[in-house]
């Protein structure tokens, strides 16, 4: 663990992103004193749940040295087909069962990625670009292309459940939904896998050097396969939460979000070459993206500038450390 005073701490992406978040909050509070409130916090947290779960999965793939762009298609496929199935066979199906179906469908689709990548050794970007298109097309052609707003009642009940709700002194309403627990559970489980199991350490090792991992006798194929199945399962979970909370199964939603998610992960310090990425960084990256998407208006920047701002943040947030590393390397030579 790096201490607060080490040089390492100040040059890390995490520190940089956290700094930008704090800076943004200060500016936002100056222009609107209402910004710093429980209401804003609950809004931002609610907006972070789906993107957060997806980002944890995307981070895992980046750490293993791959890239996955198909997870949004998996999420929407799993969500929609689980909803359709529940409505067709047992409209009163309890929500844990619907969630389990969605997670299993996600894992199965992830396994398809896993087969192409781990077994046949194909490039991850190409495989997932292909499956992104395939999963989405399959969903719209064979399962349905209608928005369903009459979801199973249990899904609605899930979205109504809150940990805490109330009204602030200023009179604005806030609530923390149970779905937050899912994000926290995903974080804890992923943290445990990454740091406490040989499987997790193998994911880092493979991302660091695939060849070395093979020579050392790490089960490279098995580990890669696990990564894509796990990411698929997380996508299934994120998808069904998205559908429940939004109270609509929309087969056109989510796809298109994948680049924002990967941007959040990269902002948090994960590198596209593999081997690097932390949960803290990923969550900070998610927080920054969510703040930009939801609260930019508070500091007087029109929402149309959202994507420009996100782009700038990526360029600066990942460019500065990369440029510094390059300078350091030049000096060492």
């Amino acid at each position: 663990m790096s201490s607060l005073f080490s040089k390492d701490f100040w040059t890390r992406n995490e520190t940089l992103v956290a700094g930008v978040i704090v800076l943004f909050c200060i500016i936002a509070t100056l222009s609107d004193p209402q910004f710093l409130s429980v209401t804003t916090l609950s809004d931002l947290l609610r907006a972070s749940i789906v993107i957060g779960i997806l980002a944890v999965g995307a981070m895992l793939v980046l750490v293993s040295g791959g890239i996955d762009v198909s997870f949004t298609a998996i999420a929407v496929f799993a969500m929609y087909s689980a909803s359709v199935l529940a409505l067709a066979i047992w409209p009163d199906m309890p929500w844990p069962l619907i969630f389990a179906i969605s997670i299993c469908v996600g894992a199965a689709l992830g396994a398809i990625n896993g087969v192409f990548i781990a077994v046949f050794g194909l490039p991850t970007l190409i495989v997932t670009l292909g499956t992104l298109s395939m999963f989405r097309g399959f969903l719209l052609t064979f399962i349905g292309s209608q928005r369903i707003s009459a979801l199973p009642p249990e899904m609605r009940d899930f979205s109504r459940g809150v940990i805490a709700r109330g009204t602030t002194e200023a009179g604005s309403f806030y609530s923390f939904p149970w779905a937050l627990v899912a994000l926290i559970a995903v974080i804890l489980l992923t943290w445990f896998i990454l740091h406490k199991t040989m499987l997790g350490r193998s994911i880092y090792a493979i991302g660091g050097s695939l060849e070395s991992a093979r020579r050392l006798g790490i089960n490279v194929k098995g580990t890669q396969f696990f990564v894509y199945v796990y990411v698929g399962a997380l996508a299934g979970l994120a998808g069904i939460i998205h559908g429940s909370v939004g109270r609509m199964a929309d087969p056109f939603s989510l796809v298109g979000l994948e680049l924002s998610v990967i941007a959040a992960v990269v902002l948090g310090g994960a590198r596209l070459i593999g081997g690097y990425g932390t949960l803290t960084g990923t969550l900070l990256g998610v927080a920054l993206i969510v703040i930009v998407q939801n609260s930019l208006i508070v500091v007087g920047i029109p929402t149309t500038w959202q994507s420009v701002t996100i782009g700038l943040l990526i360029l600066i947030g990942t460019g500065v450390p990369a440029y510094r590393a390059k300078r350091a390397a030049a000096r060492a030579g």
């Binding site: 199991t197 350490r201 880092y204 090792a205 006798g217």
Partner: peptide, 29 residues
């Protein structure tokens, strides 16, 4: 090997102990 087959992103202790942990057959690190 000439390229040492190390994991650049991992710490020294993990690089040294990785294979012993692996051959130990343990699931937990």
């Amino acid at each position: 090997f000439q390229d040492f087959s190390l994991f650049p992103n991992l710490t020294i202790y993990e690089n040294i102990a990785f294979s012993t942990q692996l051959t130990g057959g343990k699931r937990l690190f």
